[in-house]
Nucleic acid binder design. Structure first.
Ligand code: NAD
Ligand code: NAD
Lengths: 254, 254
DNA sequence: CCGATTTTGTGCACGCATTCACAAAGTCGT
DNA sequence: ACGACTTTGTGAATGCGTGCACAAAATCGG
């Protein structure tokens, strides 16, 4: 073994939190704070202090016992670990509602992500300006992606086109993809896909909201009905009948 | 104990996957498929079949051994569990780039989420139309949220305004919040916040992209340099010097 | 009616992540 | 120079999630 401190393999869960720490640190730096304890930073980042320290310990031993962490130095170390000391060229495919919002967003450039080019398949979009870019024809994707050294592809097309677009991004050599379309993409194992699914987020919120509503109902009025299934707790939109349950319906299906 | 099948407490990890299964099932239903095995559905959803079965088993015993799951029936059961048999009214605060994209998106209504109202603080936005809604003054938030029975709030304002907007949503009785601003929101424990952070996603992609680049470099040329720290593997934007590391620098800090 | 076949539902083992709790390390005041 | 105090870094315990592997259940053909 050699004294290579940052051995390797930082746990995924830690990596996902590093950007949060980074943002909290930058906010502290803006306020003129030069030194921060794990406790303070943990509060700012919304995590447990022990978890924060363990996460940071994966990068190396950058704190000072009795004092805390030097804000600027830690910002640099996290940025370096995340690969933010260089710029990354990003291509956005699909300049509809969402693609436009992303293209116009200023918050990426400041974090080292340069929108390098935009693509669409719609002839009415091609050639128009969005932000300070001209929308390219998807037909030119491979050429331009290579020319501009694009490393990250963002898919903001309808779901039906997503796999096809993904295949072309991969063919052009891109191995990091952020997918906004609600589809499961299949890619070779060398390619990493991350999915952002807004409907899913809302559905998870709905699940918990329903749970809350239900448990509150039970808490106050209900006398614990017998076994009759109470399909819909909120007794409003009960209109749509449940689909024919499987025909076999054995007598004792528990 | 009573024969209440869906006892309670479905693991969070399972809940987060239910929307994915739901979408895969709907796609199958559209193709006319009436019955599906855990294996097929698992492929469509991009997960392990055993995991899928265990997830579904938390909802009840809705499969038929030797056959599989009835597509329509399973769609109904998952929808019910997620609370999608009723409609949910959603308010969007901040109609900038992102808020507009969300307001114009058609994919929410079809999943039971109705955009009920839009808010902004900018006088130039207030009163304008976005989608088929008029943008309301944020000053009227509490009143309108109660009137329209809004259950879910979406924050699409700049980070600086997010906590303040959040507080008002909570004051108006909303207990489910989807936050797009890059801030940690603090809320009472009765309120659930989910965060969608696009910059974080890109940063995670960048981390892995850097790892790949680095390990490929090492794989072919490098003769394993001695201990000199190699800060930047890509030797390009090496311009910016690392910040002054903590002054104390002990001799043997390992 | 029975036996071969398919596929579910789940017990179990394993590994990763979280959190506690504490010794080691460093600071700061006197 | 020293002792009280602060805060890091990490061992150890616990809990959660994943996936294998298999018995139980149901179908179907003969
Ligand atoms: N807008 C939102 O708020 C939102 C929310 C959740 C999910 N999504 C998802 O994000 C994706 C984009 O949403 P949107 O609202 O921007 O859709 P949109 O219809 O407004 O835009 C899609 C764009 O993709 C282009 N396109 C279609 N096929 C293409 C192809 N093969 N190659 C290149 N471009 C192509 C279209 O011309 C269009 O400009 C969709 O999959 C949608 O489900 C969007
Ligand atoms: N646009 C993107 O693609 C993108 C990507 C990642 C993150 N985000 C985040 O999403 C948020 C919105 O981004 P955007 O690009 O739409 O910003 P934007 O500046 O285009 O829009 C913000 C809107 O919020 C309104 N607003 C400001 N203060 C308000 C208040 N107190 N109450 C109500 N409305 C208020 C503004 O008037 C403006 O219309 C930001 O926090 C941004 O960091 C956006």
């Amino acid at each position: 073994m050699r004294p290579r401190n940052t051995t390797d393999g930082i746990p995924e869960a830690s990596i996902a939190r590093l950007p949060v720490y980074l943002r909290a640190l930058q906010s502290l730096a803006d306020q003129g704070v030069t030194t921060v304890s794990s406790h303070q930073l943990a509060i700012a980042a919304g995590v447990n202090p022990a978890k924060l320290r363990k996460d940071l310990s994966h990068l190396g031993s950058y704190g000072t016992r009795g004092v805390g962490y030097e804000v600027d130095y830690l910002i640099y170390q996290i940025s370096r670990e995340l690969g933010l000391t260089q710029d990354w060229a990003v291509a956005i495919v699909g300049v509809g509602n969402l693609g436009r919002a992303l293209a116009n967003y200023g918050g990426f450039a400041s974090r080292g992500f340069q929108i390098a080019c935009l693509f669409d398949a719609d002839p009415r979009q091609i050639g128009t300006r969005v932000g300070h870019h001209v929308v390219h024809d998807i037909a030119d994707l491979e050429r331009i992606v290579v020319e501009k050294r694009v490393a990250i592809g963002v898919i903001a097309t309808p779901a039906a086109a997503a796999q096809q677009v993904c295949d072309r991004l991969v063919a052009a050599g891109i191995r990091s993809i952020l997918n906004f379309a609600p589809t499961v993409l299949s890619v070779p194992p060398t390619v990493e896909v991350r999915k952002v699914d807004l409907s899913t987020e809302l559905q998870i919120l709905a699940f918990h909201a329903q749970r809350r509503a239900l448990s509150e109902l039970e808490a106050l009025d209900v006398i614990d009905y017998p076994d009759i299934e109470r399909l819909d707790p909120r007794a409003v939109s009960r209109a749509d009948e449940p689909p024919d349950r499987p025909r076999r319906v054995a007598g004792v299906s528990r």
